[in-house]
Computed example of a mutant assay.
Amino acid sequence: MIIEVSGLRRLFKKVVAVDGLTFAIERGSAVGYIGANGAGKSTTIKMLTGILRPSAGTVLTCGLEPLRQRRRLARRIGVVFGQRSQLWWDLPLRDSYRALGAIHRLDHRPRLAELAERLDLASFLDTPVRQLSLGQRIRGEVAAALLHSPELLILDEPTIGLDVLSKERLRAFLAEQRTAFGTSLLLATHDMGDVRRLTERVLLVDHGRLAFDGTLDGLARQVGAERILVLDLAEPARPLSEIPGTRLVGVEAGGLRQRLSFAPGTTTVAAILSAVTERAQLHDLTIEEPDIEGVIRQLYSA
């Protein structure tokens, strides 16, 4: 087990930030930790890494007690906080890696060479961290967290502020690292693209309590989120508003393209298509999955 949490609780004055949280994460897993601002995500991570002491409950990270065995734990985990830096602000990036190598008592150069190639760091290794762009700094932070090849990588909003291309490159790299090294991943983020691309399981926390534990598709089913069947017809047809188990949500191009919404479990794509082909000739189709941000908003408002 890479993480074990039981009855975890953290109070700030009269505010309960984490309230009776219990979950376990298997070694080698990739888990998304999601929730609204103030739900308790960052507080949980600080307790998992030994920065904060729990008010109650127990936590084991890599089999260690984070607060009591913090030094040993630091050698086995890597952490990236999107809005906090572990790099030395006024020093060249290369010097930060040299210092981190000394802290971990390892020859960092072979691993740095690999990370610099994969994350495209070479052109700014000798640039002071304060002069780096946001995208360059985040890539530098990820490299710092992976320099000692940790068993567990914890990311707290790692792609915040990055452009679409930078996000995609970082996601691809993290997926490759998991495949190559079997690194466990705990990802706390608001970016559902990160969660969908990088994780197999999600933990949804609401006001410090675990509200859901499962897959993204399972989360969508729990709130009754609908899928959209986009139908491209061979010829314009009247609106397909009478297909059993569906709801017509859009007609485009004079009836050539029509969108039908349906809830998984109430009908099937095969049944819908059978009914559609009785009324019109089908040319092509696509299925749009539920918008996960909308699913989460729906769950919070329920």
Rank of each mutant, 00 (worst) to 15 (best):
G35H: 11
R98K: 14
L152M: 02
D291L: 14
L162Y: 00
G35Y: 13
A302E: 12
L106I: 15
L52G: 01
A180L: 14
L147Y: 03
M1T: 08
S149N: 11
L210K: 14
L146W: 06
A271Y: 00
A30Y: 02
T179V: 15
Q136W: 07
A113P: 04
H190E: 07
E26Y: 06
S6H: 10
D217A: 15
E242S: 12
I160F: 02
V205H: 02
R171T: 02
S241A: 15
A74K: 07
A74F: 00
L153W: 00
L91M: 15
P290G: 07
E200Q: 08
E288D: 13
S149Y: 00
A99R: 10
A175F: 03
G28Y: 06
L132C: 00
S261C: 04
T189G: 04
L229F: 02
R171P: 00
I3C: 08
F124P: 00
A275F: 04
W89V: 03
R70S: 13
T266S: 14
Y300H: 07
R247N: 10
D126Y: 07
W89I: 05
P158M: 08
D206H: 15
R171H: 11
L162C: 03
L73P: 01
S301V: 03
A234G: 13
V18I: 00
R70L: 01
R98F: 08
D217R: 12
L64P: 01
R130P: 00
F23D: 08
T22A: 15
G50V: 05
L285K: 04
L248Q: 12
G135S: 01
E176P: 04
G214Y: 08
T61K: 07
V79A: 09
G224M: 03
G32N: 07
S149H: 09
A270Y: 11
H190N: 08
L67G: 00
D120T: 04
E252K: 05
I45Y: 06
E114I: 12
A143Y: 02
T179D: 15
R238T: 12
A145W: 01
L87C: 11
L11A: 15
A220N: 01
T267F: 01
E168H: 13
T189P: 00
H148M: 05
L162G: 07
R105W: 01
A24V: 12
E288A: 14
L187I: 01
R9F: 13
F124G: 08
S29K: 09
D194L: 05
S301P: 00
S42Y: 05
P66N: 11
A234M: 08
G218P: 04
H283I: 05
A234I: 11
E200S: 14
V15E: 11
L162P: 00
K167A: 14
L185V: 02
R118I: 03
V16W: 09
A175V: 02
V5P: 08
G50D: 08
G214L: 12
L299E: 06
R247P: 06
A211M: 07
F81H: 11
P92H: 05
V15Q: 14
A116P: 02
D191Q: 07
K46G: 00
G7L: 01
